[in-house]
């Protein structure tokens, strides 16, 4: 065989690892820049989570009195069954 397989594959190793790193390093820089820009100009709004409420007061504030009633009823029946 004319070409030296090992020398050739070592060249691939150098090319491959440097390109993968170049790509990822560039990606890291771009992502960091991007996050800085986004944080500065489009700061994330505090999202109001309507699906998960942690207390009955939150629930009633949102007008979900039916849910509060259902929870109270189920608690009552659970206590009675004990």
């Amino acid at each position: 065989m004319e070409i030296n397989l090992i020398a050739e594959s070592v060249k691939f190793l150098i090319l491959g690892m440097s390109t993968v790193f170049m790509f990822l390093v560039l990606m890291v820089f771009v992502l960091e820049l991007q996050s800085k820009i986004i944080m500065k100009f489009f700061p994330p709004k505090k999202e109001e989570d309507s699906t998960a409420c942690n207390s009955t007061s939150e629930l009633s504030r949102n007008g979900n009195l039916a849910v509060v009633a259902a929870i109270a009823a189920s608690l009552k029946s659970y206590k009675q069954s004990k």
């Binding site: 397989l5 090992i6 050739e8 594959s9 070592v10 691939f12 190793l13 491959g16 690892m17 993968v20 790193f21 790509f23 990822l24 390093v25 990606m27 890291v28 992502l31 960091e32 996050s35």
Partner: peptide, 22 residues
Amino acid sequence: PKTALLGGAAQFGIFGTIVGAA
């Protein structure tokens, strides 16, 4: 994002193995 570099280094397995196969 810096942890992406770890994902890059792990690709050494690919190119190292090509040398191994050769």
